[in-house]
Amino acid sequence: MTFLFCLFAALALIGGIGVVVCRNPVSAAFSMILSFLGLASLFIQLDAFLVGTLQVLVYAGAIMVLFLFIIMLLDVQEEEKRRFPLISFAGAGAVVTAFLVLVILVLNRGGTAGRSLPVVAPSESGQSDVHRIGELLFGTYWFPVQIVGVLLLAATVGVVVLSKKELK
């Protein structure tokens, strides 16, 4: 369990570093897919099977295909080496270090964060998590589902309008 956690966490983090380090946008996109696959594995390790599957299908599948498509459509060139990188690199390093120190400080405060993975009780009548989430989605959360449907429609129309040659 711990070994698998380390493996997938390393996959997610190395993929993330690849996105930042690769100067070729296509390599960055592929590192991103690697990172999302590691993240989906972590979700599945946390017994979130539906969410892990969605992460692979929607993020690693649909969204990254969209990114690659746009990269190739725009014929994006490799980023040339920056001549005076020091200021922005130092600034980014300072912000990231401060953030990580903050995270470690918060995590070291103890509380409930240090306890190990609790055991999930077997659900009654063997319902899967898909079943439970479906019941919640179309029961308690029926209204947000409608709103999200309208949002997707609005996004589709917005993208079509934005992609027109001349905005009028």
Partner: peptide
């Protein structure tokens, strides 16, 4: 495995993304 492990991975990934944006 503790909650800390997952929170740390999440925080590190967030920091990497932040560095990329900057």
């Amino acid at each position: 495995l503790t909650l800390n492990h997952f929170l740390f991975v999440s925080g590190a990934l967030f920091a990497i993304g932040l560095a990329g944006v900057l």
